[in-house]
Design a protein around this nucleic acid. Structure first.
Lengths: 196, 196
DNA sequence: CGGAAATGTGAATGACTGTTCATTCATACG
DNA sequence: CGTATGAATGAACAGTCATTCACATTTCCG
């Protein structure tokens, strides 16, 4: 039983890595089994199938993302502070789980319609938190933006893109990158960044 | 011969549509032939194979993007004006050719290494134009940004994301969307948008 | 008109796909 | 000790994949 959980975790880890790197359709169950160090048939002792595995990975990630968001926003009041908390959470989470994020972003279209619907609900809930912050900032006259809904999508695309280029071996630390994105996000809504 | 060119164009058009919609690996040559209205064997009279077709589509798009950029920037001087021209060009081009852009963004990893190298050169050249503008703005003390290279990637990700959500049937026109992105981009570098 | 070149067909190729299954193995329990 | 259990195997399944090819058909040009 303990060994079982271990194998299941190894499969999930390898699948996450391979799906993110090559794409869901470009990874065969044989590739996956090889990466785990077993034969293809054994995978089905742990997952019903490839599609279930994908949606499982995605849902786990989205739920974790939403939980991390709740934690990050807990007790934060004030529109500006909430925006700062959101940006810091989003960028650092994406830096810490690049494969999860990349997969959830790229492979939505590989989900069958039922699974896609479930994931989309979670995604919309996430996006809505940011949009609400931006709308609040607008009605308070705090932010200067053209359209809250569009601006939310702009910021999410901007921040999510960090996974495409960031490497730990590069010249910038994760914290530095977070602060860079924070500065850009704040200025984009018409706020000046804090002086350091 | 005229009929040939017609078919070739039809194949490219259908391939672009299908690849962008379902992903390169999820589209079979049968699907493609069906969409064009012919049998799979005939496709090979026009393209050496699937991989060549993909890289052909991508290269055509990247070359076209760079040409459109040259046109858009021709004769524009002044750092702020150049930034405005870049943003307007990028967003409107992406609104006009969403499939091309989406494909070039999503399917780089489906290219074999030779083709990927060629495309990456073109992509870097494009990115470099924006980075140069941002660096100029920094040295002139015009922009207030933390890091020109990172900011270039932030803006490109932000703007490119427009293809993910924009629909002509929505509440906003393409021109309105361009102006929204322009305003956000200008504010993100510490400039105020022009009053309308 | 004639022949050659271009273009399309439909079947065939072998490799690979996700999934199933009888079997084996090692361990845990009474 | 016998037996139940979860896990891994390796072969087999039916289907799909990109690609090739011999053969028809169409189109072009002299």
């Amino acid at each position: 039983m303990p060994e079982s959980r271990n194998t299941k975790a190894k499969i999930r880890k390898a699948a996450l890595r391979l799906f993110a790197e090559r794409g869901y359709n470009a990874v065969s169950m044989r590739d996956l089994a090889d990466a785990v160090g077993m034969r293809q048939g054994g995978l089905y002792n742990h997952f019903e199938g490839k599609q279930v595995l994908l949606s499982d990975l995605m849902e786990t990630h989205m739920v974790g993302l939403l939980e991390a968001l709740d934690t990050a926003m807990a007790g934060i009041s004030g529109t500006r502070a909430r925006l700062e908390a959101f940006v810091r959470h989003h960028v650092s989470h994406h830096l810490n789980y690049p494969d999860d994020v990349f997969l959830a972003y790229m492979e939505v279209r590989s989900l069958d319609s039922d699974n896609r619907a479930r994931i989309t609900v979670l995604r919309n809930r996430y996006e809505h938190v940011l949009r609400k912050i931006l709308e609040d900032g607008c009605t308070q006259g705090l932010f200067r933006i053209g359209d809250a809904a569009v601006h939310a999508r702009m910021l999410l695309a901007m921040m999510t893109g960090v996974t495409v280029w960031y490497r730990d071996s590069g010249r910038l630390s994760r914290d530095e990158v977070v602060e860079l994105y924070l500065g850009a996000a704040l200025q984009s809504v018409g706020l000046a960044a804090v002086q350091s």
